[in-house]
Amino acid sequence: MIAVRVGHLYPDYLNIYADRGNIAVLARRAAWRGLAVELEAIGVGDPLDPDAHDLLYVGGGQDREQALIAPDLAARGDALLAAAATGTPVLAVCGGYQLLGRFYRERSGQELPGAGVFPLHTVAGERRMIGDVLLECELEPGERRTLAGFENHAGRTRLDADATPLGRVVAGFGNDGESGYEGCRVGNALGTYLHGPLLPRNPWLADWLLARAVERRTGERPSFEPLADDLEREAHAVSARRARHRGGRF
């Protein structure tokens, strides 16, 4: 049996928006495909070997928790970049997404250092951007998909000119409430503000990440049989409808 090794960074600190729901979806869907999942929590000061994981996850925290782990995360920039460079899929949500950029500048002007995996930086704004969101993405050429979730962030994330966003905002604020884009993608590393949690109502993305994790492990990309995702589709439809009706805008 193939074992997918999942590294979950700072689960004790970064777990504010039900990040464990994303982990549960990865673990269950892997199991339904006959894959084993070895889940490892990576805490402050723990070693991070860029070759030790087939998938990395970083969740979101409140300001205080994020400030507590930011220096430790920033110091892991090289290891994370090395992991991403070998194709390790990464999912970073909300605070984790911000801290994998170059820096996060608070309203006071103080800067939290980032790990520098994503070519972006984030500056705290006055009004929080809160609401349901709907994105359109094309992670594989020609395969248009949607992601539905919820966002709640004060940070305005600015991508570098040549950076690739995760998706186009159909409804909601997105990275900064004005660019029309959300998230960031570097190879198999994805960053996004969408929680909800993200993966239960967007299972195609869970499968995308798992397929790349298996490829990272075995050198071959599997083609998964579809699962019975009726509930997931229904939850996605409700969430997408919410975004269209009441997604945030300035």
């Binding site: 729901g21 549960a24 979806v25 269950r28 239960p200 109502r201 019975a228 509930l231 997931e232 229904e234 939850a235 409700v238 969430s239």
Partner: peptide, 23 residues
């Protein structure tokens, strides 16, 4: 409730049998 499907997913991904969930 309005988010019944999301709740059903919560149960499903906790390992609860999907056919024992009425939405």
């Amino acid at each position: 409730g309005e988010r019944a499907a999301e709740l059903a997913l919560r149960c499903k991904y906790a390992g609860f049998a999907e056919d024992a969930i009425e939405v």
